[in-house]
Simulated assay, not measured.
Amino acid sequence: MCLGIPGRIVTVDDTEPRSGTVDFDGLRRPVCLVYTPEAEVGDHVIVHVGFAIALVDEEEAARTLAVLRAMPDAIETELGP
């Protein structure tokens, strides 16, 4: 199963293609930000296979993370090592 996982952008790198680091409930991963050019540090995004695909507000991100926390290892499994 593939999920879009919400996370908070903690860094935006000065690279091409545009990328940054996203925090997924304490788990940080590099993410491509090409599809969300308006996203900045502190914004919440939905990430699918390493690409931020949409901005979401903090409330929606929190609701989605609460559901994912209820599924054992959902976040770690989806994001990988």
Rank of each mutant, 00 (worst) to 15 (best):
I46E: 08
T21S: 08
R28K: 14
L55N: 09
L79H: 13
I53Y: 08
P72S: 08
A52T: 10
V22I: 01
V10G: 03
F24G: 04
V34C: 06
G50C: 08
A54V: 10
D23T: 05
A62E: 15
F51V: 07
E58V: 09
V10C: 02
V56A: 11
I46G: 02
A54G: 11
D14G: 02
A54M: 07
L55A: 11
S19A: 13
L79V: 10
C2Q: 13
E78F: 00
T11W: 02
P72A: 13
T11C: 00
L27N: 10
P37C: 03
P81C: 06
P81W: 09
L65S: 12
T11R: 04
L3I: 05
V49E: 11
L27D: 13
A52K: 00
S19G: 07
M1Y: 14
T36E: 01
R69A: 12
G7E: 00
E38Q: 15
L33K: 02
D57Q: 09
H44S: 06
A70V: 04
I53C: 13
P30R: 04
T36C: 05
V47I: 08
P37A: 10
L3Y: 05
E38V: 09
L68N: 05
V49P: 05
G50Q: 09
G26A: 08
S19T: 11
Y35K: 14
P81G: 11
E78Q: 15
L3K: 01
L55W: 05
T21D: 06
L55M: 14
T77P: 09
T11P: 00
L65A: 10
A66G: 12
I5E: 01
Y35G: 07
I75Q: 08
G42K: 10
V22W: 04
D14S: 06
I9M: 03
D13A: 09
E59Y: 08
T36M: 05
V56T: 11
L79I: 13
G20W: 03
G20F: 11
T77E: 15
P6E: 01
T77K: 14
P30T: 02
A52I: 06
D73H: 10
T11Y: 02
D25K: 00
T11N: 04
L27I: 14
E40K: 13
A61R: 01
D25V: 02
H48E: 15
E76A: 13
A39P: 06
V34L: 11
R8T: 05
R8L: 06
A66L: 10
L79M: 15
T15G: 06
D43R: 00
Y35Q: 14
R28G: 04
V34F: 12
T36V: 15
V45K: 06
V31G: 03
L79E: 09
F24K: 00
E16F: 11
M1L: 15
M71C: 14
A52Y: 01
G20T: 06
G20Y: 01
E59L: 14
A61M: 07
A61I: 12
R18G: 02
A54T: 00
D14Y: 04
H48M: 15
A61D: 04
H48I: 11
I9L: 04
G50A: 07
T15N: 01
R29E: 08
V56N: 03
T77I: 15
G26L: 01
I5D: 01
I46K: 04
T77R: 15
P30Y: 02
I5G: 01
H44G: 01
V49M: 12
V12L: 08
A66F: 05
A66D: 15
D14V: 04
G7Q: 03
L3E: 08
